[in-house]
Structures are given as C-alpha cells and as structure tokens.
Write a protein that binds this DNA or RNA. Structure first.
Lengths: 144, 144
DNA sequence: TTAAATGCCTACTAAATCAATAGATTATAA
DNA sequence: TTATAATCTATTGATTTAGTAGGCATTTAA
C-alpha cells in the first residue's frame, strides 16, 4: 500500500497541476485545501523540489509551483521518489535492485517470473497516469 | 514490497508442494532447508493451517502437509493471507476495503481509476501463479 | 504406560519505519 | 526594515516487522 506521505504528495501535485502556470502557491493553502499537516507537507514539497518536479520561491508572494508540465509527471515517478520500489521483491526491482537474502539461488527461483510480470504491468499503468490525466478525470467526475 | 514473512510462507509452501502426498514434513526440516528461523516458521505454518491450506499431525512422525492440491494454491491467496491487501489504496481494495481519510471525496478522486487497473492486472497474474506452476518453473530453471 | 517427539499457544522484545512536530535560519518583496 | 514564506536540523511517539522464549498439549513408538 502507498504511504500517507505518497498520497499527500500526489494530492498536492494534482492541486498544483490545476494551478499550472499561474504562479507560486503557498504551502499553507495546499495544506488547508488538501487536509495535509503543514510541516509534513513542507518536507514532501521539498523532496519534490529536489527531484526537480517542483520549484519554489521564498519570501512574500512565494510558494511552490510545477516546473514540469502536468502531462510530464506521472504516478510511477512520484511513487518511486516517495515510497521507493514498485516491484514486490527487491530482486525484480529495476530501480532499487537488491539480492533476496531469502533466495538460496536467484537463478532457480520460481517466483520471480510472475512478479516480474506484475512489475511490468504496474509500471505500464502508473507511467500512463499523468497529473494531466488525473486532473481531467477529476473534472469529469465532479460534473456528474 | 512483500514482507519477509510472506516470502518465507511462499518458499515453505513450494517446499511442501514438492512433497505433496508424501506425508507430513517437520518444521525443522523446512526451517533448515529454506533458511527460515524455526519459531518464525512455526507461526507462519500455523496461519496457513488456520486458512486451511495446510494440515498438521502432532507427535512423533508428525509435521505439516498441503491439504489443497499445488494447482489450487496461488500467490494471490498467500499474499492476502500474510500481508493483507493487494491494492495500493484501501479504497480500491476488494477484500480489505476502507475509506481513504485523505480523500475529501472518493467519488471525484482521479487516482482511483489507475489504481483499480493496477489491482486487477496484479490479481490476474498472482491468481495464475500456483504452487504447481512455480515448482514446475523451478525444475525447468534448475536443469539449465 | 511412559518417554520422546512434535505441534500449539501466549507473551515479550529489539529494530525499523511511518507520521508528524518544533524551532531556528535564510531569502524575498513591499 | 519588517513581515512573509520557504529551508534545514533534530526530535518524538506510534506502529509494524521480525523475531525470541518458554511452557503446554498431543501423538506415537517402545
């Protein structure tokens, strides 16, 4: 399951996607509108800035804003950044590969096949899930 | 990611699948062969018994054995039993549904679509991954 | 019938991770 | 130069993970 931190990150990003190209948005505003603890959100936004998804401006009139287009930021990137591996085993992870201590022999482990397929299917869907699409979907749903 | 407990459970089950219909296997044997701490394994096998995947026999000559056919036990069942939900959000889980506190409004949440697809694709693959198939695959790989 | 083997059950613990908070510092605009 | 807002470092409490300890209950072979 996703951590709260990751859910917060996604909601904050969708919020900023809606304000794309409209100048900085303050932490406090996002915090209130999305019900995210201010200080926790602060740490999350900072991480997203270090990953060069967001940029910030200090001082009066400052805040955070998207530097990438909403169509260029997807759930795969955000989840990897905040929660780490997408794969269900370290030994089938693309970005966080590590040996499975439990496996006596990775070469003959019969579980890896299935979990590699799961990983690939998951990545395919998450990569297509951009902020732009999520935002569009929310507007659709809100209209009904 | 899967917990160690879940990985242990899977390895133990594959081990027992290989001994299917050959009488009880002692905890100690599985523990040694699969490098799983004895007492931890004990707790895991007990859970699998309560789920009616395994049965046990006490006393001398006792041990654990599969009560279902290796083709009738799959990774979906085991992961749900040991680690809980497969879905990435409680609000898209089939077996462990719960409201997402973070969502102001589940109806208009744009994230759920994607994660529902991820869930379904994952379940499809995990459900097909039976102990019989895993065992077969391991034998294939061992021959090369 | 008794002793050894084996699973069953309850309780406890150390370490890691998650979720969040506190407080001082730095940069910016008016 | 003052109010505003992000930045950085450190700490904390709760929960989960990964185990451990020890005694109890049952079965079977001798």
């Amino acid at each position: 399951m996703l951590s709260k931190k990751c859910k917060y990150a996604i909601h904050a990003l969708v919020y900023l996607a809606e304000r794309y190209d409209q100048g900085p948005v303050q932490i406090e505003e996002i915090s209130k509108k999305q019900h995210i603890p201010h200080k926790f959100l602060e740490a999350i936004l900072l991480e997203l800035r270090h990953a060069e998804i967001l940029e910030s401006k200090k001082g009066k009139g400052g805040g955070y804003f998207l530097v990438k287009k909403p169509s260029e930021v997807n759930l795969m990137q955000v989840m990897r950044l905040i929660d780490g591996p997408i794969a269900l085993l370290p030994c089938v992870s693309l970005n966080f590969y590590d040996r499975c201590e439990e496996c006596k022999n990775e070469k003959t482990c019969g579980i890896r096949d299935s979990l590699t397929i799961v990983r690939d299917e998951t990545l395919r869907v998450l990569e297509q899930s951009t902020l732009a699409k999520i935002l569009k979907r929310e507007k659709q749903l809100a209209q009904k």
